[in-house]
Amino acid sequence: MPMDLPKPIADYVEANARLDLDGMLKPFRPDAVFIDNGKPFEGQVAIRRLIEEEVMPVKAIFTPDTVRNDGGDIILEGPAHGDFPGSPLRFTLVDGAIKTLETTI
């Protein structure tokens, strides 16, 4: 099902589907925070390390099938594929880039 996603989120999802590390990082602000199950990874260097160490080894691909707005945050839900439990993703955008991405179990 095609979804009307803001460009930085669509770019992230598309890059994730290809397991393209650089493409996944591109839509993040330099001061972005990726919160993975309550643990924050601040800045692109830390986010890159998280993706290299946690996403790529298990080939974690998220395929959203629903999108909703929650107080300005964009929530994507759908199946995740790979060797891990899936979870919704919560995005916060600032100035046309991802400021925060949060996963929770």
Rank of each mutant, 00 (worst) to 15 (best):
D36N: 12
V94G: 09
T103G: 07
V94S: 11
G71D: 10
I75R: 07
A10T: 04
T103Q: 06
S87M: 11
P2I: 13
G43V: 01
T66I: 04
T103K: 08
T104D: 05
E102K: 10
M3C: 02
I105D: 12
I75K: 07
R90E: 11
D20N: 10
L25T: 05
K7L: 13
D70G: 01
D20K: 14
A80M: 15
M1G: 09
D83Q: 07
G78F: 12
D36W: 14
G96T: 12
P30A: 12
D70Y: 05
Y12A: 10
G82E: 09
I61C: 06
L5P: 06
P6V: 05
G23D: 00
A17S: 15
P88A: 03
F41D: 07
P79D: 14
P85C: 14
Y12F: 15
R29C: 03
P57V: 04
G23L: 00
D73P: 05
D65R: 09
G38S: 09
S87V: 02
E102T: 08
I98K: 06
T100D: 06
P30M: 08
A46S: 09
I61L: 05
T63P: 00
L93R: 05
T63H: 06
L50A: 09
A15R: 11
R29V: 01
L89M: 06
V13R: 13
P27K: 07
E52Y: 07
L25H: 09
R68H: 00
G43R: 03
F84V: 10
M1A: 14
L19C: 14
E54V: 04
T63A: 05
I35L: 14
V58M: 14
P40V: 11
D4H: 15
Y12D: 12
A17C: 08
Y12H: 15
A15T: 04
F62H: 00
P27T: 08
P2N: 15
T100H: 12
A15S: 10
G86S: 11
